[in-house]
């Protein structure tokens, strides 16, 4: 047609990221978050003394001027993340070998299995009081709680992974003349890898809760400490800001660090159907 030359400018096709965002329900999620913020604002407008009981989202951002713009918030987040990384790194370094060592011997692993399950069920918050009795309100207390919290889920999952290794794979390696060490390295550890990844993700998730709880009772600075001291100072906006940050940061850690690692180990070896 002759009119095509004056037709409307060509519409740019939507980018891949945009299409993936839409297909993954991104729009619905955005609407849901907007809805929650609106509802929150409405409630906040209609209660007495909102700045004490429930400041609106806007006033949370505005009245947290100090922490946001003076660089205190990044500082606190950094402090909390630092504790998480160090604590869970030690937890992984100790928990993985421990779980593997227990898994090597059936009798030993049968014996430890319920004990590991027992400790796994006592959350970090439940042991915090006794740790405070032992080490007081110190940095050490915070680390011990993080370490405790992530160690058991990690070790327990690794143990489960080693125990669930198909016997036929172990036997195949034995008939190839493999030593015990070789079997651990070539069969047990790779076979337990998906469990190790899951254990790490769970353990770090628990550690994230533990570090916040730990900071409330012991230690200085950090998001947990900020929430606790803000409450003392009657700064509800900062309490809420801290809570939101805890959730948002965790989603980012999980989405961009932990999940990709877990999915990669599991999928690459075809251990689950894609």
């Amino acid at each position: 047609m002759t009119r095509s030359s004056e037709a409307a400018p060509v519409k740019k096709p939507p980018s891949r990221q945009w299409r993936r965002f839409v297909r993954g329900g991104g729009i619905e999620l955005m609407l849901l978050i907007a809805g929650i913020l609106v509802l929150w604002s409405v409630i906040s407008e209609n209660i007495p003394n909102p700045s004490r009981y429930l400041p609106s989202p806007v006033s949370v951002v505005l009245s947290s001027y100090d922490v946001i713009w003076k660089g205190l918030l990044p500082n606190y987040i950094g402090q909390t993340l630092w504790r998480l990384v160090i604590g869970s790194a030690i937890g992984l370094l100790l928990g993985i070998p421990f779980g593997i060592a227990l898994g090597l011997n059936r009798t030993v692993s049968d014996m430890f299995y319920p004990i590991m399950n027992f400790f796994q069920s006592i959350s970090g918050i439940a042991i915090l009081p006794i740790i405070v009795v032992w080490w007081g309100n110190s940095e050490k207390t915070v680390f011990v709680v993080i370490l405790y919290t992530c160690f058991f889920p990690i070790a327990f999952n690794v143990l489960t992974g080693v125990r669930s290794t198909p016997m036929i794979l172990v036997n195949a390696l034995r008939t190839l003349g493999a030593s015990r060490l070789r079997i651990v390295k070539d069969v047990l550890i790779p076979s337990a890898m998906p469990h190790i990844a899951t254990g790490a993700r769970l353990g770090i998730g628990y550690a994230w809760r533990a570090v916040i709880a730990g900071e409330m009772l012991a230690g200085r600075r950090g998001l947990g400490w900020m929430i606790f001291t803000s409450q003392d100072a009657d700064l509800t906006a900062q309490v809420i800001l801290g809570m939101v940050m805890i959730g948002v940061i965790w989603i980012m850690i999980d989405r961009f660090a932990l999940r990709p690692i877990e999915a990669d180990t599991i999928q690459r070896w075809g251990l689950v159907q894609r």
Binding site: I168, T175, W269
Partner: peptide, 14 residues
């Protein structure tokens, strides 16, 4: 000295 081929292929998935 004795190689074995098992009923279910026992090769390592990784």
């Amino acid at each position: 000295d004795r190689g074995v081929v098992f009923q279910e292929h026992a090769i390592l998935p990784w």
